[in-house]
Amino acid sequence: MKWSEMFTSSIGKKLVMALTGLFLIIFLIVHAGINACIWANDGGEMFNKAAHFMGSTVVIRIAEIGLFLGIFLHIIQGFMLEFQNRSKRKQGYAVPMGNKGSKWYSRSMGLLGTILLLFFILHWWHFWVPARFIGHEELTELEINGVHMHNMYNLMQYTFQELWVVIAYVFACFSLCWHLIHGFQSAFRTVGVSNSKYVNLVQNVGIGYSIIISLAFAMMPVSMYLGWV
């Protein structure tokens, strides 16, 4: 079997979704960890240092290319699978099966993923594009221990003064949580975890992971809007 045959088979396509999904799951831990520095109560110093490290270290910048490849592969393959799968039943049922046997979020990965994609466009426009390319008047420069860096903390605080932005971010985190609750355990099933001991572990860890990560992300704009940090 050629590589192309493997990755275009129905299981191969799932494998691409699972492997890129697991990669993004690991990325979210790093992203949430770095951002959690805003709660250090030091006026954003720790967060700015962490953000500067991520932006100025060559290994991380190379990994960033991998991250974008992974995320776009996940998005493109996800949409293709969604449309291909939908086309496999030209005539639907008069009485839909609904929740008799499966959870709504496991059937709505395409919708939840689309919400997340729309959120990413907003999110990249808020932070990634100003930091990398076009700058922003609230993205001031500062110097910590003789090192020049962006004041990303300031840009965050400015961005999260708008109520609609905070609501959009919290809504996206809500979508993320459901997307992850299904995606986490589904990814492990797809790579072949069938031993009941591990399936149970993966299920429980997955739910815990999804809630903690989404809650942490959701609390960042909320904390800033309410002036907690």
Binding site: E5, G101, R189
Partner: peptide
């Protein structure tokens, strides 16, 4: 699996409706 794909079945997304 190759024959299953050729017959026009979709790809599994682990929803669990089949098992139910």
């Amino acid at each position: 699996v190759a024959q299953m794909d050729k017959e026009g079945f979709g790809a599994c997304t682990n929803t669990g409706a089949c098992e139910a």
